[in-house]
Design a protein around this nucleic acid. Structure first.
Length: 804
RNA sequence: GCGGGUGUGGCGGAAUUGGCAGACGCACUAGCCUUAGGAGCUAGCGCAUUAGCGUGCAGGUUCAAGUCCUGUCACCCGCACCA
């Protein structure tokens, strides 16, 4: 009597065995070939695991399990990115300490992950809120500080009105907070900044050497936004020199006015020279008041104020140009000032039309520039441009750059859209920034020996309306002595953003219990870089960019062995609700993984999520489709009753097995789990048609299915007595020459239309195949009485006879 | 506006060095079994009465096009006054 497929019992049994035996612990034997697979560690929220998490985790679990069977020493770790606002907010609301909330959430997440049978190495579990972990996050911050890459600056920052906290540029989406969706406004604040802009070029260049999917590379490139241009020196009527940045130095003769950002420092300096200073200041105030959202909304309508009493001189033709201020020129990009060439720039043209400014054509080849700007630069020729006349745009650009350089009026310059990373947050639940402020010595880093600087217990974690961190109220903690002069000093009370701990966590996994270094040199040299990293597209310009930045910095100071942290990056699509919308509580379409595991089992859940569709694309959840995966596994289970002796593949299935091994092996590497499963289903159908399965066939089948459905296959392996545990067996191999059946069905076409199908030997010669094709009655009829012009045989596919 | 991507049955999706479109699964239909169930088994399942027609649409190249070329439409994602 055979056992029924009792998934609940089987899954529990194997999960316990794996735990007890530490089956999936990575070995410290550095002589073995290694594979480091990584998935983004979750934020342990109170809601528990989302069905989206297992999509990523299962995919790399499959890769990891296959790599182990292929003999690799695999590191597939998991941990917790546990600092963050939701935990803090929950703690505030329920009067529980955030560390307790975190602990509870982690326990729940861990239970859920274990219930899905992921082969994580739990002995290397890390937690970003653990002082023994964030000690090293702080240590890295100190290194950045020492190299001048962390600095404090008073500036206009993005302020989330609901989180009561500053945000990095990367965290602002359409003028709203990336996390909570509330409106973002500008606020003048002194903030810690990280100079990621110093790494713009390296972050860009590094992309050429890694295997990231194209859309990730493209998005990062766009975000960094490199542009090659020219910086040109202008002189104002006040005698002050100022610079502008342009990518169109060729159009310098077409400049008819200048625009400065309202925040440009010269505006203040010229306060007594500008005749309409009141109007200018009013405009500046108005611009500052606008939120990011309003600014984008109003982007179409150009506004500005002309400076009365101050003008600029165009260095190429000495023409006097009016100067405007307008918020379409950003203080944070380039030099905060531009020359405006309305004939050849959309924005300048719009502004010129609105303010009735002259439009002078300097590139010919377009329509009348009075009607529309001509921005095309591939074909035009220079006109009205003195020594540039007749040149192409590209030639003119070079000639102008040379002229400017020769006359000491400008230089070539590369600009980036990327801005420095706003690194402080006015919240409690984050890593304390290990710096004190001393009246005498300024900002002084804590000595490394004093790390970790532990987050103190406070009575209230409530964010404050005045924009101060809750830690500021802890006067005992705040008041301290200066490590440099021993005098009075105050601690930094802002904390680090959530992205800090996740910027280097993959390094800690290499050597998670090391209390001397963040990881030993040997461990890093063996395990790095991460061979394959899968994660969400939403992290492309946040976590992925930030962690590459930190890693490149660590490489530059000689503490990590590779310039890039991740050799390969892939990304999964979202799992949507059954209605095709994003899963959310408010839409009521959330699926809880616990329910699926309970009702169908972890193996079914894993197979279903992999079979749901193209891994990279979003896919709607379908409760009824899960049944297909369940039926599939039940059929595989039922085969153990049809077992017959024999270690070989039966001749009629030999090619099929070889093909399937090839397909599954290659599809796993290509993240095409859906077609790998389809191939296994197809093979199963063919096996079922024979009414039995040999031991050798079953053994191979279970190995192929194991990465997808690890519990059930281990159980069947044991039931069948295949020896040892499946996870210790070897991944099956295939013989390319045996992948094709000896006889194949080919299609016969006449003039490209299918007339018949016949079976022929796989290695049949073309003339023989064509002759056989002509014997078919339907084919004979179709070509009867006509002249054959051409006859083709595509091996193993078809014959096409062309007639007239 | 710029950048990236996608359009294939009722649904999720296969198939791209050009070579049998719709693999695999869901749903559906019919039949069997039945302890009556939202279980299992068998068969069918792109459209069309036929010749035929079919991969967003219109052309083109080719013996042969979902796949290549030209044009066009729709939708999704990212960035967004970056000079």
């Amino acid at each position: 009597m055979s056992k029924a497929y009792d998934y609940a019992k089987i899954e529990k049994k194997w999960q316990d065995i794996w735990d007890e035996k530490q089956t999936f612990a990575a070995k410290d034997d550095y002589s073995l070939p290694k594979f480091y697979g990584l998935v983004e560690f979750p934020y342990p929220s109170g809601q528990g695991l989302h069905v989206g998490h297992p999509r990523s985790y299962t995919a790399l679990d499959i890769v990891s399990r296959k790599k182990r069977l292929e003999g690799y020493n695999v590191l597939y770790p998991m941990g917790w990115d546990a600092f963050g606002l939701p935990t803090e907010n929950f703690a505030i609301k329920n009067h529980i300490h955030p560390s307790i909330v975190t602990e509870n959430n982690i326990a729940n997440f861990k239970r859920q992950l274990k219930s899905l049978g992921f082969s994580f190495d739990w002995s290397r579990e890390i937690n970003t809120t653990d002082p023994s972990y964030y000690k090293w996050t702080q240590w890295i911050f100190l290194q950045l500080f020492k190299k001048g890459l962390a600095y404090k600056k008073k500036m206009s920052v993005n302020w989330c009105t609901s989180c009561k906290c500053v945000l990095a540029n990367e965290e602002v989406v359409n003028g709203h907070c990336e996390r909570c969706g509330s409106e973002v406004v500008h606020k003048e604040k002194s903030q810690w900044m990280l100079k990621i802009t110093d790494y713009a070029e390296k972050l860009l260049e590094g992309l050429n050497d890694v295997d990231f999917i194209d859309r990730v590379k493209t998005q990062q490139r766009n975000w960094i936004g490199r542009s090659y241009g020219t910086q040109v020196k202008f002189t104002a009527s006040t005698g002050d020199e100022f610079e502008i940045f342009t990518t169109r130095a060729d159009t310098l003769f077409g400049a008819t006015y200048m625009v400065m950002s309202p925040e440009h420092p010269l505006i203040e300096k010229w306060a007594d020279k500008i005749e309409n200073m009141e109007e200018v200041l009013a405009y500046k105030q108005e611009a500052a008041k606008k939120s990011d959202f309003e600014r984008t909304e109003l982007a179409k309508d150009k506004t500005g104020v002309k400076l009365e009493g101050v003008t600029a001189i165009n260095p190429v033709n000495k023409k006097e140009l009016p100067i405007f201020i307008s918020d379409y020129v950003l203080i944070s990009y380039g030099t905060g000032a531009i020359m405006a060439v309305p004939a050849h720039d959309d924005r300048d043209w719009e502004f010129a039309k609105k303010f009735g400014l002259p439009i002078i054509e300097v590139v010919s080849g377009g329509e009348d520039v009075q009607n529309a700007p001509y921005t095309e630069c591939a074909t035009g020729k220079m006109v009205n441009s003195g020594f540039l006349d007749g040149l192409s745009v590209e030639e003119a650009k070079k000639a102008m750059q040379k002229w400017l350089a020769d006359n000491n009026l400008g230089c070539v310059k590369t600009n980036y859209k990327l801005r420095d990373w706003v690194f402080s947050r006015q919240r409690y639940w984050g890593e304390p920034i290990p710096v004190v402020y001393c009246e005498k010595c300024g900002y002084v880093p804590l000595p490394e020996s004093e790390l970790p600087l532990v987050l103190p217990n406070v009575d209230s974690y409530e964010p404050t309306d005045n924009g101060e961190s809750p830690l500021a109220k802890m006067t005992d903690w705040v008041n301290t002595t200066c490590p440099h002069c021993g005098g009075h000093a105050v601690r930094e009370t802002d904390t680090m953003p959530q992205w800090a701990g996740s910027s280097w966590y993959f390094l800690r996994y290499c050597d998670p219990h090391n209390d001397k270094e963040f990881a030993s040199k040997e461990a890093l040299e063996y395990w790095c870089p991460v061979d394959w990293y899968n994660g969400g597209m939403e992290h492309t310009t946040l976590h992925l960019l930030y962690s590459r930045f930190w890693h490149k910095f660590l490489y530059d100071i000689g503490v990590v062995p590779n310039p890039e942290p991740y050799a390969k990056r892939t990304s999964h699509g979202m799992i949507l609700g059954e209605n095709g919308e994003k899963m959310s509580k408010s839409r009521g379409n959330v699926v809880n993984p616990d329910d699926i595991v309970r009702d169908y089992g972890a193996d079914t859940m894993r197979v279903y999520e992999m079979f749901i569709g193209d891994f990279e694309k979003a896919a709607p959840w379908s409760q009824s489709s899960i049944k297909g995966s369940k039926r599939f596994l039940e059929k595989v289970w039922a085969l153990n009753e049809k077992l017959t002796d024999g270690e070989e593949y039966r001749p009629e299935l030999e090619a099929n097995f070889n093909r399937t091994i090839k397909k599954v092996t290659e599809d796993i590497e290509g993240l095409k789990m859906n077609t790998a499963i389809a191939a296994l289903m197809s093979l199963l159908n063919d096996i079922q048609a024979t009414g039995s399965i040999t031991r050798g066939e079953y053994r191979t089948y279970l190995l192929l299915l194991n990465p997808f459905a690890p519990h059930m296959t281990e159980e069947l392996w044991e039931i069948c007595g295949f020896g040892g545990m499946l996870n210790e067996a070897k991944w099956p191999t295939f013989d390319e020459s045996k992948c094709v059946d000896s006889a194949v069905e080919i299609a016969i076409q006449v003039n490209g239309k299918i007339k018949a199908r016949i079976n022929v030997p796989a290695e049949i010669a073309a003339p023989d195949a064509i002759a056989l094709a002509k014997e078919d009655s339907a084919v004979a009829e179709a070509i009867g009485g006509k002249t054959v012009i051409k006859e083709l045989y595509v091996p193993k596919k078809l014959v096409n006879i062309v007639v007239k």
